[in-house]
């Protein structure tokens, strides 16, 4: 366990080092406008990664998040055109996310289906509903006041408008995970479902709620996505699910559940965004970026294991040496 903790500490160090090195070798990288762009670019991934951390910590997974976000985005566009009110549209979009999450939660906790299988199914279903809703059309007439929120920065700062939302939610999810009873339940369920059940933790209800929250936040991310791109379209957020899961795992959350920290995940999302931006600014081509993404993910699991084996080996050797010298 301690080695995993040290991994998420390493992620934070990596983040700091990357930004520092980036600032030295490339002044453009550390410029306000670029850092603002990085924050904006990782917005949806960061949002969805927060509740996904909880889910993976309890040993579940949700692959349908990108489709959920896209469906919420499509509902936003559809409801805006139907009602003419952005407030109604936003509520409808978040509500869509909640329903999507509840369907996942129901199938997993009530019917006892594996979440990997269920969410592969709902990934297709929700994406399909996007096409059923919008077909070949794109909704691109959102009011300018709203779309400005998506891509301009807070006046006087280089920060995008999504920043306060990210900070508030990241802190809130972090507090819940590390300082409340719900958070302790999440760790307990992740360590051992059986033990958690014996301890009186309502495992099914907890997991159901986590799926609903994940859906709701994915819905929120769908709104952010629409505003950032000033349009709602059925193929929005395509493929984001693997990026989210890769970030959470890179942040030191164990895929077996029970281990991880919120700040490790937040650091990981920021680190991956910064590294990508830095490499892109250095002219590293897209094909190499794909390899680096995969390589980093592999490194995040290989390095802790190798480090542990190395220290175990050294300990054993020193013990042998100590035994050999009377």
């Amino acid at each position: 366990m301690s080695r995993v903790l040290s991994w998420d500490r390493s992620v934070f160090v990596l983040l700091v080092v990357t930004v520092a090195v980036g600032a030295v070798i490339d002044p453009d990288f550390a410029g306000g406008s670029n850092l603002g762009f990085v924050l904006q670019d990782i917005g949806e991934i960061m949002l969805i990664a927060l509740p996904m951390t909880f889910l993976i910590m309890t040993g579940e997974i949700d692959l349908s998040v990108a489709s959920t976000a896209a469906l919420a985005g499509c509902v936003l566009g559809w409801a805006w055109q139907a009602s003419g009110s952005m407030a109604v549209a936003v509520l409808a979009a978040v509500g869509t996310g909640v329903v999507c999450g509840a369907v996942n939660g129901f199938l997993v906790t009530r019917l006892g289906l594996g979440s990997l299988a269920v969410t592969i199914g709902t990934l297709g279903l929700y994406r399909g509903l996007c096409y059923a809703l919008l077909g070949d059309t794109t909704v691109a007439d959102f009011p300018a006041g709203w779309t400005n929120l998506g891509f301009s920065s807070i006046p006087g700062t280089p920060l995008p408008y999504v920043t306060p939302l990210l900070v508030v939610l990241a802190v809130a999810f972090g507090v819940v995970l590390h300082l409340t009873r719900t958070g302790r339940w999440v760790f307990a369920v992740g360590q051992s479902v059986e033990a958690a059940r014996f301890a009186g933790i309502p495992v099914a209800r907890l997991k159901f709620r986590l799926f609903v929250v994940t859906g709701a936040v994915a819905g929120l991310a769908g709104i952010v996505y629409d505003l950032r791109f000033a349009s709602a379209r059925p193929d929005g957020a395509l493929g984001f699910e693997l990026a989210v899961i890769a970030s959470v795992l890179f942040g030191g959350v164990s895929i077996f559940g029970g281990v991880g920290t919120m700040w490790g995940v937040v650091s990981a999302v920021l680190f991956l965004g910064s590294v990508r931006s830095l490499l892109q600014l250095q002219g590293v081509p897209g094909n190499a970026l794909t390899i680096i993404t995969g390589g980093l993910l592999l490194a995040s699991v290989v390095i802790p294991v190798v480090a542990q084996r190395w220290s175990a080996f050294r300990e054993r050797r020193s013990r042998v040496l100590a035994a050999a010298t009377p």
Binding site: L249, I291, G294, G295, L298, V301
Partner: peptide, 11 residues
């Protein structure tokens, strides 16, 4: 995690 990583690497 491993095969998600190699998915990107092989690709």
């Amino acid at each position: 995690v491993v095969t998600l990583g190699t998915l990107y690497v092989f690709q």
